[in-house]
């Protein structure tokens, strides 16, 4: 072996150890949550967090499922997350298509507008949004038209996530050769046909990775559902996690079990779309 290769091996090992250490650091809280979720709080309270377990089982899970009223809240999460992700991707790809494929005076300005909207913190705009929803409700004659309705939450998610989706999709579209669009136009494709039959099939990888990210973000949201809804029974699963928390006493072991249950759907989405997710992240990183 040449000295050069030796030093390369050494470097690789150092990097592996470094990465390994960080992976451990990252995995530890998850493993600890999993471990805690199998232990009763009573034991922790009496003997401390690091005591050896006497009782060990899935009792926290059965308890959490019934206390969280899992079917109701999971369903609420689905009827918010699925339409919101779908609409975000539809609108995001439409805007990205227009601003990246057609040149007109405001296309850069429009892209900037949509991306900048994404930078506004939700905490800053929630009061105006809340009042707006109530006012629209008063105009329609039903205060619960948008406020306290899953559709209101869907709309705000679409509005907030669309900027990011537009940004990612338009960057990706810029990497698709112009010639494809030109030949479509030469063949007489309409704008919609151009979008639907030519561009959309090429967008599958970034759409899949965005779908994973959006699902995670929207599913994990607690804030909008809290401020835009008044009936707890309509809120998503993040709110149901709160049901495991008492006013004074919090059973952290039960909460750990609830957190694991609540995290499962996003994991499933990730594993289903995993292949597209990875290729979507790297696609466009190299040209050629």
């Amino acid at each position: 072996m040449t000295p050069l290769r030796d030093s390369q091996v050494l470097k690789d090992r150092a990097i592996s150890i470094f990465i390994g250490a960080f992976a451990m650091l990252w995995v530890f809280p998850i493993l600890w949550t999993l471990w805690s979720s199998f232990r009763p709080y009573k034991e922790i309270r009496a003997r401390g967090t690091f005591s050896m377990p006497e009782e060990f089982g899935i009792f926290n899970y059965t308890d959490a499922i019934s206390r969280m009223q899992l079917p109701t809240y999971l369903w609420n999460s689905f009827i918010i997350t699925i339409p919101a992700v779908f609409l975000t991707l539809v609108f995001g790809s439409l805007i990205a298509f227009v601003v990246s494929r057609y040149s007109f005076k405001f296309n850069v300005g429009m892209l900037l507008l949509f991306t900048a909207g994404n930078l506004l913190p939700a905490q800053l705009v929630f009061i105006p949004v809340f009042k707006l929803y109530l006012n629209i409700g008063d105009v329609v004659g039903d205060r619960r038209f948008l406020y306290d309705s899953p559709w209101g939450v869907v709309l705000i998610h679409v509005a907030f996530q669309m900027g990011f989706a537009t940004f990612v999709l338009s960057s990706y579209m810029k990497t698709i050769p112009k010639e494809i669009s030109e030949s479509a136009l030469v063949d007489g494709a309409s704008v919609l046909r151009h979008y639907w039959n030519v561009m959309l099939p090429l967008l599958r990888p970034p759409l899949a990775s965005l779908a994973v990210l959006m699902t995670t973000w929207i599913y994990n949201d607690f804030f909008w559902a809290l401020v835009l809804m008044s009936t707890d029974k309509k809120r998503p699963i993040t709110s149901a996690l709160g049901r495991l928390q008492g006013e004074f006493v919090t059973d952290y072991n039960l909460l750990a079990a609830g957190a694991i249950i609540a995290a499962l759907p996003t994991l499933i989405v990730f594993f289903v779309l995993r292949k597209q997710f990875v290729s979507g992240l790297t696609l466009g990183s190299t040209k050629g």
Binding site: F130, D148, V227, S230, D232, G242, Q245
Partner: peptide
């Protein structure tokens, strides 16, 4: 009967009362 976890309820009370409260 609408039950909300106490912290969430408390933090959101101002909106709750202005919106469609129980």
């Amino acid at each position: 009967y609408n039950a909300t976890e106490s912290n969430a309820f408390q933090n959101n009370l101002s909106q709750y009362l202005q919106g469609t409260p129980d």
